[in-house]
């Protein structure tokens, strides 16, 4: 059986009808069948056809990942399911807003590190910054970790959005 199979992280892209309840269906599928969600993003991507794209980052054994995909695919409002991790190279990006409170050296250091990570200051007071950073999840993790020592008070993250590389589309 699959119990010894390695657990891998997969990014799955799902094209769905933009209709009420579709997100609840997807989330209910994951919770009802005990699958893991690391992040999930959803927004309308085609207003003429009324389609939304859901990006799901999940992890599991190959058997579980296969189940997740076929279970998603049999939901009535689902048009397409694509496992970006398996089906060739892809780009994923995530954005975070990171609030840091401090004065003096820590404040200067926070600004220096933000510069290194190409994070933008989108709000500032005498004692605080809010940085906006975009990148792959691991870069955001590292940036947030560094900010912890420099007065981090709040983080908000979008979760990953993703597309395949190259000319192909779906």
């Amino acid at each position: 059986m699959s119990t010894q199979d390695p657990i891998r992280r997969h990014t799955i892209s799902v094209l769905v009808d933009n209709e009420p309840g579709v997100l609840a269906r997807v989330i209910g599928l994951f919770s009802g069948r005990g699958y893991n969600i690391e992040s999930l993003t959803v927004a309308e991507v085609d207003s003429n056809e009324s389609l939304s794209r859901i990006n799901i980052v999940t992890s599991g054994t190959p058997m579980i990942i296969e189940q997740i995909k076929v279970q998603l695919d049999r939901l009535v409002p689902v048009h397409k399911v694509k496992d970006l991790t398996l089906e060739g190279p892809f780009i994923d990006r995530e954005m975070a807003l990171v609030k840091v409170v401090g004065t003096g050296d820590k404040r200067v250091e926070a600004l220096r590190i933000a510069d290194i990570f190409k994070a933008r200051v989108v709000d500032a007071t005498i004692t605080s910054f809010v940085f906006e950073i975009t990148g792959i999840g691991e870069d955001l993790d590292r940036f947030i970790d560094l900010m912890r020592q420099l007065g981090l008070v709040d983080v908000s993250r979008t979760g990953a959005v993703a597309l395949s590389r190259g000319t192909g589309a779906f």
């Binding site: 058997m63 296969e66 189940q67 076929v70 279970q71 695919d73 049999r74």
Partner: peptide, 8 residues
């Protein structure tokens, strides 16, 4: 007929 039954 249901692919989700396969390898479940």
């Amino acid at each position: 007929i249901d692919p989700s039954n396969i390898n479940k």
